[in-house]
C-alpha cells in the first residue's frame, strides 16, 4: 500500500476499497454495522432523537493536547450532549488531501477511535473522498452525531431566572491559545494545551436534577463571551461573571497577557457552560469535580434580572464593572 494518500484512494475503485478495508473498517466497524455502509439502519426506541453535524478544518492537524481526530469526536459529541441527549452514534466523513502521509491518516484514525471508545459512541457509517494537492489542509473531517434525548431535562433559556448560576467545568480559552501558539510557531516553552474533551459524562451526571438544569452550551469558537452573549440575546435577563472566579490555566493566561488577548474570547473544546438553579450548584460542583473532565469546575457567574437584560457583564478583580462583548473578527494580537 502506498505510504501517501493518492487521488485514486478516493476514486471508488480498488485503492479506495483497500484503504477502507485496511485502515477504516478494522478500527470502527464492529457489531451489526460491519462494512460502514453509505446508509445505516438504526433501531431506536420511542425516544426523541437529537442530531448534530459539524465539520473540522483545523490547521495544523496535530497540536499540543489533541488532534483533529479528537476534535471531530469531542466537538460533535458535545453538541449532542448539551442538547440534553445521550449520544450513541457518529457518522464519519473524511476529505483527504492527495499526498497526505498514510501514517498521518493512521494517527488521526487512531485518535478518532480512542476518543469515540472513551465517549461510548459508535461510528456507524462513513465516507472518504480525496481532493487534489493544495485543495485542503491535509484532512477535513465531518461527523454527525445522533443521540437520544434524556426525558429528565427540559432545557430552554425560557426557564432561566434571576439568581440562577453559571457553572463551567474547567479553565477557559485553552484550545484557542494552544492552536494559536503552535500554528504561529510562537517561541514559548511550556505552551498551553488544548482542552479538547467530551462532556457527555458531565451531562449524564446532571439527570437527577431534572428541571433545575435550565440550559447548557459548549463554548467553542468565540469562547465563553460569544456563547453567553447568544444566551442573553433578546432575553429578559443578563449574566454577570465574577472575574475572581474565572478559572484560567496559568500558561494560557500568561500568553494572552503577552499578546493582549481576552481568554473569554478564546476557543474551548472541552467545556460545558451550565445554567442551573443556585440551590443545586454545590452538589453539581462536587459531582463534577470527582471526574477528570470536571475537576476544574467553578461557579463563574449569576443570572441578573430585567435591569441588565440582554447583556453580559464582568465584575472585575478591582470591583469595577464592564461589558463582556462578542469577539469581533479573528483574534489579532495588539501592536504594543
Amino acid at each position: 500500500m502506498s505510504d501517501r494518500i493518492l487521488l485514486a484512494h478516493g476514486g471508488g475503485g480498488r485503492l479506495s476499497e483497500e484503504l477502507i478495508a485496511t485502515e477504516i473498517l478494522p478500527r470502527f466497524a464492529f457489531g451489526g454495522k460491519q462494512g460502514l455502509p453509505d446508509g445505516v439502519t438504526l433501531n431506536v426506541s420511542e425516544s426523541q432523537l437529537v442530531v448534530s453535524t459539524d465539520s473540522f478544518v483545523v490547521n495544523p492537524l496535530f497540536f499540543p493536547g489533541a488532534s483533529i481526530g479528537h476534535l471531530a469526536v469531542h466537538g460533535t459529541v458535545n453538541d449532542v450532549s448539551v442538547s440534553g441527549a445521550k449520544v450513541a452514534y457518529l457518522t464519519l466523513a473524511l476529505i483527504l488531501e492527495e499526498g497526505l502521509p498514510m501514517d498521518t491518516l493512521r494517527e488521526i484514525l487512531d485518535d478518532i477511535k480512542k476518543a469515540s471508545v472513551q465517549c461510548g459512541v459508535e461510528i456507524v457509517c462513513g465516507d472518504t473522498k480525496v481532493v487534489g494537492k493544495g485543495q485542503c489542509d491535509g484532512a477535513f473531517i465531518n461527523t454527525t452525531g445522533i443521540g437520544f434525548k434524556y426525558p429528565e431535562f427540559d432545557l430552554s433559556t425560557a426557564h432561566v431566572k434571576e439568581g440562577d448560576v453559571v457553572i463551567v467545568n474547567g479553565t477557559l480559552g485553552d484550545h484557542g491559545m494552544a492552536v494559536m501558539a503552535f500554528r504561529n510557531s510562537m517561541p514559548f516553552q511550556n505552551s498551553p494545551k488544548s482542552d479538547s474533551a467530551a462532556v457527555n459524562e458531565l451531562v449524564d451526571q446532571l439527570r437527577p436534577f431534572n428541571n433545575q438544569i435550565k440550559f447548557m452550551r459548549d463554548p467553542t469558537r468565540g469562547g465563553v463571551a460569544s456563547v453567553l452573549n447568544e444566551i442573553v440575546s433578546a432575553q429578559g435577563f443578563g449574566i454577570e461573571l465574577d472575574e475572581e472566579a474565572l478559572p484560567f490555566d496559568k500558561r494560557s493566561r500568561a500568553m494572552s497577557e503577552i499578546l493582549g488577548l481576552d481568554l473569554l474570547h478564546s476557543a474551548c473544546e472541552g467545556r460545558l457552560l451550565l445554567i442551573c438553579s443556585a440551590e443545586i450548584a454545590d452538589e453539581v460542583l462536587s459531582l463534577w469535580r470527582d471526574s477528570e473532565v470536571g475537576s476544574g469546575s467553578e461557579i463563574i457567574g449569576k443570572v441578573c434580572g430585567e435591569k441588565d437584560a440582554g447583556r453580559v457583564t464582568l465584575k472585575t478583580t478591582i470591583g469595577g464593572r464592564r461589558i463582556v462583548d462578542m469577539p469581533h473578527g479573528e483574534l489579532l494580537p495588539r501592536i504594543c
Binding site: 514559548f188 516553552q189 511550556n190 505552551s191 496559568k250 500558561r251 493566561r253 500568561a254 503577552i258
Partner: peptide, 11 residues
C-alpha cells in the same frame, strides 16, 4: 520564552 505555571511568576 517559558510560559509560567507558577503563581509566583504571575505575582
Amino acid at each position: 520564552m517559558e510560559l509560567t505555571d507558577s503563581n509566583n511568576d504571575l505575582r
